[in-house]
């Protein structure tokens, strides 16, 4: 018995010396790749990653109001820049970890044609879009509709998800026929997981540059810095591109 206790204490001491925890705030679109990256990072470093997800605008509000995050992986580059200017993020450590792609997706096999013509025919009941005020993918979706000259056509038929995750949920449950989501949510290993989709050409909206930043609370945390470094390592980049992002 005492042997087990001493072994346990030994292990606990050993792990507490090397292992650290890092709390990160992750934009909803990057949730799945981040979970995979976190697992790989935990295995190589021994650190533990605690992930909170949400719309970038919401995460920003939480950070401004004292949320205990050490790293932010945003869905845009403006939010991290703003945090830097406001003194809530470490200056000079911001970098683009992924460039996202917008996709028009339906859970049904023939819900969306490969050219997005359905947006012109309007043959659907509900179009799901993430809140453009809070979610960068929502803003990109609105820009796309504007570029196609049909921004005002669907105001009474578009439903707003509070984040790209809820938008996906609206479509996945079949309540919205189609909607704009992040490619990473419906792609895995370079393939569409289910339903049908139109990959929105990236000249129809501003590029969705997703920046990572070290927050003030992560400044003296080695695990936070190690994770940011790991995001740029080959192992992480391989995972990131498998979800359809470039960088």
């Amino acid at each position: 018995m005492s042997k087990i206790v001493s072994i346990t204490i030994c292990c606990w001491l050993a792990s507490s010396v090397h292992a650290d925890e890092v709390s990160i705030a992750v934009a909803a679109n990057f949730q799945q790749p981040m979970q995979q990256i976190a697992r790989a990072f935990e295995q190589t470093s021994g650190h533990r990653v605690i992930i909170s997800t949400g719309a970038t605008g919401k995460l920003y509000a939480q950070i401004v109001n004292g949320a205990p995050f050490e790293v932010l992986l945003a869905a845009d580059n403006e939010t991290p820049e703003r945090l830097e200017k406001e003194g809530l993020a470490e200056p000079g450590r911001r970098f683009t970890y992924a460039i996202g792609r917008l996709i028009l997706w339906s859970a049904k096999p023939n819900g969306v044609d490969t050219k997005g013509e359905i947006l012109r025919t309007g043959d659907f009941q509900h179009l799901a879009v993430a809140n453009p005020k809070l979610a960068p993918y929502g803003r990109a979706a609105m820009e796309t509709l504007q570029a196609l000259g049909i921004a005002n056509q669907f105001t009474d038929r578009s439903v707003t998800g509070e984040s790209i995750a809820q938008t996906h949920q609206f479509i996945a449950t079949g309540n919205a026929d189609l909607g704009f989501v992040a490619m990473s949510q419906v792609y895995e290993q370079g393939k569409l997981v289910s339903g049908s989709a139109w990959l929105v050409p990236d000249n129809l909206h501003h590029p969705i540059r997703q920046d990572a930043v070290l927050l003030k609370k992560g400044n003296d945390r080695p695990a936070a810095k190690a994770l940011l470094q790991y995001l740029r390592a080959d192992a992480a980049r391989k995972i990131i591109s498998s979800y359809g992002y470039s960088w």
């Binding site: 439903v159 707003t160 998800g161 509070e162």
Partner: peptide, 8 residues
């Protein structure tokens, strides 16, 4: 409401 409303 948040879950089934769609914020219209």
């Amino acid at each position: 409401v948040l879950m089934i409303g769609g914020n219209i």
